[in-house]
Amino acid sequence: MPETEKTHAELAVKIEAMHKWYGQFHVLKNINLQVRRGERIVICGPSGSGKSTMIRCINRLEEHQQGDIIVDGVELTNDLKNIETIRKEVGMVFQHFNLFPHLTVLENCTLAPIWVRKSPKAEAVATAMEYLERVQIPEQAHKFPGQLSGGQQQRVAIARSLCMNPRIMLFDEPTSALDPEMIKEVLDVMVELAQEGMTMLCVTHEMGFAKTVANRVIFMDEGEIIEENSPDQFFDHPEHERTKLFLSQILSH
């Protein structure tokens, strides 16, 4: 079956009939999602809709109970080997940056390449400086995260993920904890990354970002994917009433 193999190789993430519960609470209901390589997906929805939980399932920060998740051709099971393989290929950026405060910016970036990829230190430092250059803060390399502004910290967090040379990047509300002045500098980095062809899944409410870079926008509510469409269709002609209501609320100001 060469046809299925080909589609398999083209898919970065494939989620099929996935369910998740927190105790008795059914947080994710029958999630089906396919992300092709190089595709940029924006996921939005009201808080508590399960969008963060869904992308956290992709690198096993959260466990799913039913259905299949296949990332980069590897199925996520309880097998630690598979989880480790997937985590090496999937980078993640968090709402609260989650930088390691006891390490310098440079050490934050070189830690995983040295310990996980077993890169020689000099090489890891060179790569890290290259990415810090790209997010435009090479001069902060020897400072500690606590000495940087929120926007700078988030750019370091992006650089830290990129140092592992991931094939897929997950963004979990990367700009929600930032002051308005700093949102732009982070979004600029993300747009640039998108233009280079990185496969990206972003949970965000930055609708401008969704319009410029997303191939598809996914709207979630109460643990379900309600609507999935191209940005133009999604913003101009939303199909579902729930989507219309959500858009009217976030775009009314």
Partner: peptide
């Protein structure tokens, strides 16, 4: 902190 470490593959 552990989530970030996990996500990096440590």
């Amino acid at each position: 902190q552990t989530e970030a470490a996990d996500a990096l593959g440590l």
